[in-house]
Design a binder for these strands. Structure first.
Length: 349
DNA sequence: GTCCGGAATG
DNA sequence: CATTCCGGAC
């Protein structure tokens, strides 16, 4: 039973143009869907695909994932960002084997209890794996609803959120839910884009109030929050190199890159010198690398690296390692560190 | 350079 | 309520 015109239009469009061949859509395996949905949080489909393929090749089953350490999981997350997601996957697989007999739950209220899974991800998992009728409300869906119904955001955001959930619950069909959910997100990300939406080819343009009434302002833009200033943070870091080995420390209790391995970071130059002294380092030679700039939405980082080539190696303390750049040791590394290691390898070649 | 994006946490 | 997390697209 189809309830609203928008519902039928969305399902019809999927039949011709929807993304039906995504790697996690090859079967209905709830494990694969779960991993893909966590990866797809805050991350676009095309970015996720190669990470997903490597991850599933290494961890083809829930059992293989359960046998993995957090470091191994983080290794396959390296460069993808939002590393708490990998930690949440690790925590979830422990829960599944310790409390749920190794079976991924198929009950919405059980799934939503799992770490890193909210209403939208739970709905996506159940609709894509079992075709159960659950709605999703991610930013793609929000953008379509706001434009299609021309919803001016006059209310408090909490109230507005509730309104959007009510609407999507109404227009989500009982049958063909998985096609509908995939379709509305595909339409949003391929056609109803944040900038320069391709309304001419949009299957919803006949009824879309934003388009039909030819409103001057894009109602979606009214939702946007104010920008904040970018703060510049400066750090110094020490890159110790011995042959193919680089000294890395595991970050702990940090907000950014927690559980990932990085070079030792310092706020002041003098702290760098103190640290080098305390390690009683025998250096062969030092080297200057240009300052490294790195950007985030709310702040920029400049890193001034001190590169030291070592004569000999010392025993690393807890949570530190000599990382062999040529090996495939499975640890988590942020994109920044991956890039610096690549640079160093080029210089040394 | 600027914008985009789910869930947890403050 | 607001903020945080990360990397990529443009």
């Amino acid at each position: 039973m189809i309830k609203t015109p928008i519902t039928q239009l969305i399902i019809n469009w999927f039949h011709f143009y929807g993304r039906k061949y995504l790697p996690w859509k090859k079967n209905q395996n709830i494990y694969y869907i779960w991993i893909s949905e966590i990866m797809l949080q805050q991350t676009q489909v095309n970015t996720v695909i190669p990470f997903y393929k490597k991850f599933i090749t290494r961890f083809p089953s829930m059992k293989s994932l359960y046998q993995a350490s957090l470091d191994e999981i983080l290794h396959y997350w390296s460069g993808l960002g939002y590393y708490t997601r990998a930690k949440n996957i690790y925590r979830t697989i422990q829960i599944i084997f310790k409390n749920k007999k190794g079976i991924f739950p198929e009950n919405f209220f059980e799934i939503i209890q799992l770490p890193g899974i909210g209403k939208t991800t739970a709905g996506a998992i159940l609709s894509f794996s079992r075709n159960f009728s659950f709605s999703i409300l991610d930013s793609n869906v929000k953008r379509i609803l706001v434009r299609y119904y021309y919803l001016i955001n006059a209310n408090s955001s909490k109230k507005f959120e509730t309104i959007l959930w009510n609407i999507i619950n109404i227009i989500t069909p009982f049958h063909n839910t998985k096609q509908f959910n995939q379709s509305i997100m595909d339409i949003a990300s391929l056609i109803c884009t944040p900038k320069y939406p391709k309304c001419i080819i949009c299957p919803l343009n006949l009824y879309c109030l934003q388009y039909k009434k030819n409103h001057q302002k894009d109602v979606y833009l009214l939702l946007k929050k104010k920008k904040k200033k970018n703060i510049l943070k400066k750090y110094f870091c020490v890159i110790l190199i011995f042959k193919n080995y680089i000294f890395l420390e595991k970050r702990n209790q940090t907000k950014i890159w927690n559980n990932l391995f990085c070079f030792p970071f310092f706020k002041k130059k003098t702290l760098v010198y103190n640290w080098i002294k305390s390690k009683n380092i025998k250096k062969k030679r030092s080297e200057k690398l240009n300052k490294i700039k790195y950007k985030y939405t709310n702040f920029n980082i400049e890193i001034f690296p001190f590169i030291i080539h070592m004569k000999s190696i010392f025993e690393p303390e807890n949570n530190a390692i000599w990382f062999n750049c040529n090996s495939k040791q499975e640890i988590g590394l942020p994109q920044l560190v991956l890039k610096i290691i690549k640079k160093i390898r080029k210089i040394n070649e």
